[in-house]
Simulated scan of single mutants.
Amino acid sequence: MRAAGEPRWVATILSSSLLWHAARLALVSAYLLGGLVKLFDFAGAVAEQEAFGLRPGWLWASLAIFIELGGSALVLADRLVWLGAGALGMLTLVAMLAANAFWAASAAERWMLTNAFFEHLGLIAGLVLVAMLSSRTRPSS
């Protein structure tokens, strides 16, 4: 179904299953990469968590790896997307608050942290949208 005034070629592109898969892969790509990097450099992942004040670092690093890889797999498989996207969104929220606390930053750092904070907020919105769209694109049982 086309939206009013939407050109047919746009509707064709937006209804493509290839685009649906590619968009979900793009959405979770940073999580996949982050999870794999943490997995293969666990000591670095622990140090990163502790640098942000998240202790014990091994627990937070383990949770991050599990959520980044597991949540991404659920989104990509289009199964339990609400759970995968929700877990990734909550992880992103924790990361935003721990790593991008622009309100507590010096004036020199404030702009960069503010920008990163709102980029992460947009990512959370994308995860919400993929969960909403996933449930609407499946055939009814």
Rank of each mutant, 00 (worst) to 15 (best):
S72A: 15
V28R: 08
W58G: 09
N115S: 14
G5S: 03
A3N: 04
A85F: 15
L129W: 11
S141W: 12
A43E: 15
L123D: 06
T12H: 04
F117C: 01
V28Y: 08
L80P: 02
H21Y: 12
L33V: 13
M90H: 12
G71M: 05
L123Q: 06
S29V: 14
W60H: 15
L113K: 01
S15N: 05
G86A: 15
R136P: 08
G34N: 13
A4F: 05
W9K: 03
N100G: 00
L91P: 02
N100Q: 04
A11Y: 00
S16V: 09
F52Q: 12
G86M: 15
L91W: 09
F117S: 01
F118N: 03
F118E: 02
V130P: 08
L74S: 07
L121Y: 08
W111D: 05
L80D: 08
L133K: 06
A99W: 01
R136H: 12
H21Q: 08
R55Y: 14
F40G: 09
G53N: 10
V128T: 11
M112R: 07
A125W: 04
S15E: 04
A64Q: 07
A95K: 02
W9Q: 06
A105Q: 01
R24Y: 00
T114S: 02
L121D: 09
W82I: 14
A95W: 02
A73D: 05
S140N: 13
L25E: 06
I67R: 15
R8D: 05
M1T: 00
R110A: 05
V130Q: 09
L80Y: 14
A11T: 03
G71A: 07
G126L: 11
F52Y: 15
M90T: 13
H120V: 04
A105T: 01
G122L: 06
L36K: 11
S16F: 05
Y31P: 02
G44M: 13
S16R: 07
E109A: 11
V128D: 06
G44A: 14
E68R: 05
